[in-house]
């Protein structure tokens, strides 16, 4: 038989790992929800106001939104994490823990997803949007009846990329006491040289990433009728 004693440390820490997983899921749920609702709307708005689209007359909004998206996305995440911590404390009452970490995570996810959405929508052929305009569709109808339907598999893939990216960003949030799986890896694996814990957390993250990616691609393929 194999010597399972090398996993003793892991088994001992199972409750910690469970708690950390819960914290990671909480951070993900918050930042992904914010990204889809706010970032998604922003991405659609930026797309609609870009050159040649239905609301191209709001060019100032387009320029401003593009600038803000670029600025926020320029921040190295760890700097953003520290920079918004007074703001996090203001919103959730503390600057440590998963809820506090969710603030910079959401901020980064919103603008990241806005850009992803805007670029995904560009894949919808101009002619199809134009046909809808010729039939008398309003900009809102074009969004819900044309853009989101025609781009749906691309949107699923964009969400998949977002989820995977922010799973690893949430691990970075561990540095400022954000909690979660990454925090565990840093505290036990990195600072205390407990390699088994390090390996266990990485295996856990790999399994999560693989599952998310598999699910995303499966769904995207199923929805694509082009």
């Amino acid at each position: 038989m194999f010597d399972l004693s090398i996993f003793d440390g892991v088994i001992e820490l199972l409750p910690e790992i469970g708690k950390a997983t819960g914290e990671t899921l909480l951070m993900m749920a918050i930042c992904l929800t914010a990204a889809v609702l706010i970032g998604g709307s922003l991405g659609i708005a930026v797309f609609l106001t870009s050159r040649g689209q239905a609301l191209a007359r709001y060019r100032r909004f387009n320029l401003l939104a593009n600038a803000v998206i670029n600025v926020v996305r320029s921040f190295p995440f760890i700097i953003l994490l520290v920079a918004v911590s007074p703001f996090s404390r203001h919103i959730v009452g503390t600057s440590i823990g998963p809820l506090a970490a969710s603030v910079p995570l959401s901020l980064a996810a919103i603008f990241y997803f806005a850009r992803l959405i805007e670029q995904t929508l560009r894949d919808v052929p101009r002619g199809v949007i134009e046909a809808a305009e010729a039939m008398g569709a309003s900009p809102l109808q074009i969004v819900f009846h044309v853009l989101l339907v025609e781009a749906r598999s691309g949107l699923i893939l964009a969400f998949t990329v977002l989820t995977v990216s922010f799973l690893s960003y949430s691990a970075v949030a561990g540095v400022v006491g954000g909690g979660g799986i990454g925090d565990l890896a840093i505290r036990y694996g990195y600072y205390r040289f407990e390699t088994d814990i390090m390996v266990a957390t990485i295996v856990l993250l790999v399994v999560m990433v693989q599952s998310i990616q598999f699910l995303g691609q499966w769904l995207a393929r199923r929805l694509d009728k082009r």
Partner: peptide
């Protein structure tokens, strides 16, 4: 714009590349 959209609903249009919605 709303009046124009209503008027467009009474004008059909077809295109060289058909422009059908592929996911419907």
């Amino acid at each position: 714009p709303p009046q124009l959209r209503a008027a467009r609903q009474r004008i059909g249009m077809i295109f060289q590349h058909f422009n059908l919605l592929h996911n419907r």
